[in-house]
Design a protein around this nucleic acid. Structure first.
Length: 555
RNA sequence: UGGGGCGUGGCCAAGUGGUUAAGGCAUCGGGUUUUGAUCCCGUGAUCCCUGGUUCGAAUCCAGGCGCCCCAGCCA
C-alpha cells in the first residue's frame, strides 16, 4: 500500500510559497549546517528533514555545510559520521557539500572591508574584561577603550592577527554596532578570534577564525541560500545576521527564519549531556541503543522511514514543545508492524514436554512470515515433543482472565497444536521447571475440528532445534519525563535500563538474521540483529503494545 | 518600561471575524483476530485572564498573567 503523504503546511512553507509566487526567488535553496563536534541526534533529524524536505517539495536543493569555524572542538571523525548519518536517513546532498572553511579567505577580505568602513575594530580586551564591558541584561554596556582606533591601525593589527603575531585570546575583531542595545548580540559582537589550534581541513594556515555569527550568514550568501532555517535561540541573532549582510558586498540576500527545536520526554538532546553520558560511561557509546543519537537508533533497529514518519507528524512552529516519546514509539511500531517478518523466540525459557508425542519425531510446519502480507512468503519451523515456552505463559494458580497455561488448561501452540497441561514439575526451591502436556493430534495447525474455543495462544521453540543468542533489552535511559527537571539529568539515569539476557532460545531461521532488518519475535516485540557484535545477538527495538500488562497493573 | 519568542483538550497542533473548534499521539470503552499484536468503531476543549470593538471573536484592539531564550573570543 503506497503511503499517502499529506502535503505539509506550516509557517516556513507558507513563507516559501509566498516568496515563490511573488517571484522573490527562482528556486529554494536551504542548508543543513552541523558543527562537526559531535554525533547527530534525533533533534538534528528534525532540521535535516525540514531542510531537505522543503528543498525537495519546492524543487530546490539542500546543501550540507559543515560549520567548521572552531578548530578547538571539531574533528574529521565527526564530519564523516555526520555524512554517514544524513545518508542513512535517506537524504542526498549531491554535489552540494560545503564547509564554512572553504570561505575563510573571502570572509577575511570582507572583514577588512568592514574595517575600512569603520564598522569593525580590533579590541584588546580580555575575555573577562569584555564581559564586564558588555553590561547585563538590564544595564547597557560601555564602549571598549579600543573602539575608536583608526582604520589604519585596525587594519595593520588585524593583519598581524592573521599572521600569528599575537597569542590566543589577546585580541578580537569586533563589529562596531551599539553597546547599549537591548539585544546583547548587537553589543559589538566578536567577529574573529585568535586560535592557534590545527583545523581538520585548513591545518595551520589560519591563526584567526571567524565566529558563528560572522561566518554563517555570509556562507549562506555565498551559497545562494534563500531560506536559512535555524532554531529559536538564534532569533536574537537575526538583527546581527541582517546587519552583516547589509554592510557587506555579498552576492545574495538570504533570510533567516527560526523554528522550535525538538524536545522529547524521557531523554535529553543537549550535546553537552550526551557527551557526558558517553565520556563518563553511563552508556556503552554513541551507538548505545538507549541513546537518542541517529547511530544509537540505527543500532537499535529503528528504521529511517519510521524516524522520518515521526518527524513528519511533528509541526514546524515557534512554540516550545515537548513531544511524548510514545509518539516516536508509535511511528516505529507502525512501520515495523507492516515491514518486519515474524519469527519465534523464547526469552525466559521453560521446558514443555508433550507426553503423547511420538518419541523422537520432528514435524516441519510451514508458517507465514507475516500475518497480513502473504507476499512475504512462508518458512518452515521444526516442531517436536520437547519445547521451550515463555515462563510467563504458565501460572500454577492462574486467575480467570489469564488466557495461557495452567494446570488443566488448554492453549494453542501458535501454528502447531492444542495442548493441555496435565502436570508440572518443581525443583527443591519451589520453582516450576517443566510442564507436562498432552496434545490433540486432531488439531494440526492449531485448528480444533470440533470448533472448541481456545482463547490462549502461546509461542514456542523446539528444544532440540533451538539456537541460542544473547538479547539486549533496553528501556528508557532516564526515569522521569523531564530528566533535567530535578537538576543534573545524570542523577535520573535508570540503572536497570539495559538488561542482557543470555541463552535466549530462537527458531533456527534466526541464525541468518541481518542487522538493519528487524524482525518481530511473536508476542514479544521487534528485534534487530546487533551490528556491533560478531556473534549472534539481538537488540529489542521496541516491545509490542501490551494490554495484558496494563490490565495486570490496574489490579 | 533590557531585548526576543510563545500561550487552543494529557502531549503535539490546524484554525488568519460566521466551522457542530480539523487531525495525530495518549487514555478509556466496545468489536474482529491462530500474536492479550494488528485492524475497526466510539470517547474529551469554548480557545491563559480581564475588559473592549462587532449582529457575530480562538481569530481584531487594550491591559494583565504565565512560560522559554539571550550577558561564550561555542554553535
Amino acid at each position: 500500500m503506497p503511503e499517502l503523504e499529506l502535503p505539509k503546511d506550516d509557517f516556513v512553507r507558507d513563507i516559501i510559497r509566498d516568496d515563490l509566487s511573488k517571484g522573490s526567488h527562482q528556486a529554494v535553496i536551504t542548508r543543513f549546517p552541523p558543527e562537526p563536534n559531535g554525533y547527530l541526534h534525533i533533534g538534528h533529524a528534525k532540521s535535516i528533514c525540514l531542510n531537505f524536505g522543503v528543498a525537495k517539495e519546492f524543487g530546490g536543493h539542500c546543501h550540507l555545510r559543515f560549520d567548521d569555524t572552531n578548530p578547538a572542538k571539531e574533528e574529521q571523525e565527526f564530519i564523516d559520521s555526520i555524512k554517514e548519518d544524513v545518508s542513512w536517513l535517506g537524504f542526498d546532498w549531491g554535489e552540494n557539500l560545503f564547509h564554512a572553511s572553504d570561505y575563510f579567505e573571502q570572509l577575511y577580505s570582507w572583514a577588512e572591508s568592514l574595517i575600512n568602513k569603520g564598522l569593525a575594530y580590533v579590541c584588546d580586551l580580555s575575555a573577562e574584561e569584555m564581559r564586564e564591558y558588555r553590561g547585563t541584561l538590564t544595564e547597557p554596556g560601555r564602549d571598549s577603550p579600543y573602539r575608536n582606533r583608526s582604520v589604519e591601525e585596525n587594519l595593520s593589527l588585524f593583519r598581524e592577527m592573521r599572521a600569528g603575531g599575537f597569542p590566543e585570546g589577546s585580541k578580537t575583531l569586533r563589529a562596531k554596532i551599539d553597546m547599549a542595545s537591548g539585544n546583547m548580540n548587537l553589543r559589538d559582537p566578536a567577529l574573529y578570534r585568535i586560535k592557534h589550534a590545527a583545523h581538520p581541513r585548513t591545518g595551520s594556515t589560519w591563526k584567526i577564525y571567524p565566529t558563528y555569527d560572522y561566518a554563517h550568514g555570509q556562507s549562506d550568501a555565498i551559497e545562494g541560500i534563500t531560506h536559512s532555517l535555524c532554531t529559536l535561540e538564534f532569533a536574537d541573532h537575526r538583527p546581527l545576521y541582517d546587519w552583516l549582510i547589509e554592510h557587506l558586498t555579498v552576492p545574495a540576500r538570504p533570510r533567516q527564519y527560526e523554528f522550535a527545536r525538538l524536545n522529547l520526554t524521557h531523554t535529553v538532546l543537549s550535546k553537552r549531556v550526551l557527551m557526558r553520558l558517553v565520556s563518563e560511561g553511563h552508556v556503552t557509546g554513541w551507538d548505545d541503543p538507549r541513546m537518542p543519537t541517529i547511530r544509537g537508533m540505527r543500532r537499535r533497529g529503528v528504521p529511517p522511514e519510521a524516524l522520518k514518519d515521526f518527524i513528519g507528524r511533528l509541526a514546524i512552529s515557534k512554540s516550545d514543545s515537548t513531544i511524548e516519546m510514545q509518539m516516536l514509539d508509535h511511528s516505529i511500531r507502525e512501520h515495523l508492524n507492516e515491514h518486519a517478518e515474524r519469527r519465534m523466540a523464547v526469552l525466559k525459557p521453560l521446558k514443555l514436554t508433550i507426553r503423547n508425542w511420538p518419541k523422537g519425531q520432528t514435524e516441519m510446519l510451514e508458517v507465514p512470515n507475516h500475518p497480513g502480507r502473504p507476499e512475504l512468503g512462508t518458512r518452515k519451523i521444526p516442531f517436536s515433543g520437547s519445547l521451550w515456552i515463555e515462563a510467563d505463559d504458565f501460572m500454577e494458580d492462574p486467575p480467570r482472565k489469564f488466557f495461557r497455561l495452567g494446570p488443566g488448561r488448554e492453549v494453542r501452540l501458535r501454528f502447531a497444536y492444542l495442548v493441555t497441561c496435565e502436570d508440572f514439575i518443581k525443583n527443591e526451591t519451589g520453582e516450576v521447571t517443566e510442564i507436562i502436556c498432552t496434545y490433540d493430534p486432531a488439531t494440526a495447525g492449531g485448528n480444533a475440528p470440533d470448533g472448541r474455543k481456545v482463547k490462549g495462544i502461546i509461542h514456542w521453540v523446539s528444544a532440540v532445534h533451538a539456537i541460542e543468542a544473547e538479547v539486549l533489552l533496553t528501556s528508557q535511559l532516564f526515569k522521569s519525563e523531564n530528566p533535567s527537571a530535578g537538576g543534573d539529568p545524570i542523577e535520573d539515569i535508570d540503572a536497570n535500563s539495559l538488561e542482557v539476557v543470555k541463552e535466549v532460545k530462537l527458531e533456527p531461521e534466526l541464525a541468518s538474521a541481518l542487522a538493519g532488518y528487524p524482525v518481530q519475535f511473536e508476542r514479544l516485540g521487534y528485534f534487530n540483529r546487533d551490528p556491533a557484535q560478531s556473534q549472534l545477538a539481538f537488540i529489542r527495538t521496541i516491545g509490542l503494545r501490551d494490554s495484558w500488562a496494563k490490565t495486570q497493573t490496574k489490579g
